[in-house]
Deep mutational scan, measured.
Amino acid sequence: AEKTGIVNVSSSLNAREGASTSSKVIGSLSGNTKVTIVGEEGAFYKIEYKGSHGYVAKEYIKDIKDE
């Protein structure tokens, strides 16, 4: 099942092309942005936001229960 997560940073969080800190940054998400978690790979979540996919470090995403 898809989960919703909240970007848990004070400034912004980089979204990357792949599940690695050396992957190209494809965008950034500001704190408290809601994202859909579609998968996980190592220390990263694969997320969907406004129709695009990217990878973000798990430690900066807070899971919330689907309402």
Rank of each mutant, 00 (worst) to 15 (best):
S28H: 10
E41G: 02
A43Y: 07
D66T: 12
I64F: 08
I6S: 04
V25T: 06
T4S: 09
I61T: 01
Y60H: 09
Y55V: 00
K46G: 01
L13S: 02
S28Q: 14
I6E: 03
I61Y: 01
E59M: 12
D63C: 15
E2M: 15
Y49H: 02
K3N: 04
K3S: 05
L29N: 00
E40C: 09
V56Y: 01
T36L: 10
K34F: 10
K65M: 11
V38H: 04
V7R: 02
T33C: 11
T33D: 08
N8I: 12
V7E: 02
T4H: 09
I37W: 01
K46L: 10
S22T: 12
V56E: 00
E17A: 12
S10T: 11
G51K: 04
Y55W: 12
S10A: 12
S52Y: 11
E40M: 07
A43W: 06
G18W: 12
D63G: 08
N32D: 08
H53S: 06
V7Q: 02
T36P: 01
T36K: 13
V56S: 00
E48T: 11
A1N: 12
S10Q: 11
E67A: 13
D66V: 14
S20W: 07
T33R: 06
I47M: 01
G5T: 03
I61A: 01
H53I: 14
G51D: 07
G54N: 01
E17V: 08
E40W: 05
V9F: 07
G27F: 15
S52P: 00
G39M: 04
V38Y: 06
E2D: 09
Y45D: 01
S30Y: 10
N32V: 05
I37Y: 01
G31Q: 11
G54E: 01
G54D: 00
G5F: 07
G18R: 13
Y55M: 00
Y60T: 04
Y60N: 05
G18F: 15
Y49K: 00
A15M: 15
E67G: 12
L13P: 06
N32W: 13
I26Q: 01
L29C: 06
R16W: 15
V25G: 03
V7T: 06
S11T: 14
A19G: 04
V25D: 02
E40N: 04
N8P: 04
S22N: 11
A43M: 10
S30V: 12
T4P: 03
V35K: 01
I64S: 05
V38I: 13
A43T: 08
Y49L: 07
E48K: 15
V7K: 03
D66M: 13
L29Q: 01
A57E: 15
V9R: 07
K50C: 13
Y55I: 01
I64Y: 08
F44A: 00
A19E: 03
E48C: 15
V9K: 08
T4A: 06
K34N: 04
S28E: 10
Y49G: 00
K46W: 06
N32I: 06
V56T: 00
V56N: 00
I37H: 00
E17K: 07
R16N: 07
K3T: 07
S30T: 11
G51Q: 06
K34P: 06
S52F: 13
E48Q: 11
S30E: 13
S22M: 10
G42V: 02
K65T: 13
S30M: 14
A43C: 12
K62I: 14
E59G: 06
V7L: 06
E41R: 05
I37S: 01
E2F: 15
S30K: 14
K62Y: 09
R16T: 10
I61F: 04
I64D: 05
G51C: 08
S23T: 06
G5V: 04
V7M: 05
S20E: 06
S28Y: 12
A19V: 07
K62H: 08
G27K: 04
K3L: 10
V56L: 04
K24G: 06
K58F: 04
R16S: 05
S20A: 07
A15T: 09
L29Y: 03
Y45W: 12
G5H: 03
G54A: 15
N14Q: 14
G5S: 04
F44D: 02
A15R: 03
S12R: 12
Y45H: 02
S23C: 10
T4C: 13
Y45T: 02
K24C: 09
S23Y: 07
K24I: 07
K62W: 09
T4G: 04
S12I: 12
V38T: 06
A1D: 08
G54Y: 13
I26M: 07
V25I: 13
N8F: 10
Y55N: 00
G18Y: 14
I37M: 01
N8G: 08
F44R: 01
S22K: 11
S28G: 05
E59C: 13
Y55A: 00
V38R: 03
T36E: 03
S30I: 12
G39K: 02
E41S: 09
T21I: 14
K24F: 05
A57D: 09
E2V: 15
Y60F: 13
A43F: 07
V38L: 12
A43K: 11
G31E: 08
V38G: 00
L29S: 00
N8T: 11
G18C: 14
Y60E: 05
E2Q: 15
K50T: 04
T36S: 08
E2I: 15
G27C: 11
I37D: 01
V35Y: 04
V35E: 00
T4M: 09
K34G: 03
A1K: 13
L13G: 03
N14V: 15
I64L: 09
L29G: 00
E17Y: 07
E59P: 03
A1G: 13
T33G: 04
S52V: 13
Y55P: 00
K58D: 00
K46I: 14
S23A: 11
S11L: 09
H53K: 05
E59T: 07
A43V: 08
V9D: 05
T4Y: 14
G51V: 02
V38C: 10
K58W: 03
V38F: 05
N8Q: 09
T21V: 12
I26L: 10
K3G: 05
T36G: 03
G31L: 09
E59W: 08
Y45I: 03
K46S: 02
D66H: 11
E41Q: 08
V9T: 11
K62P: 02
S20Y: 08
F44W: 14
K65L: 11
G39A: 07
L13M: 06
A43Q: 10
E59A: 11
I47S: 00
G51R: 04
L29A: 01
L29E: 00
I64H: 05
H53W: 15
A1Y: 15
V7A: 04
E41M: 08
G18M: 11
T33V: 09
E2L: 15
T21R: 11
I64N: 05
F44S: 01
E41W: 07
A19P: 15
E59I: 13
S22A: 11
Y55D: 00
E40D: 06
E40Y: 04
G51N: 07
Y55S: 00
I61V: 07
S23W: 04
K3F: 09
K46H: 04
S20R: 05
G42C: 07
N14H: 13
G39R: 01
K34M: 11
K34A: 06
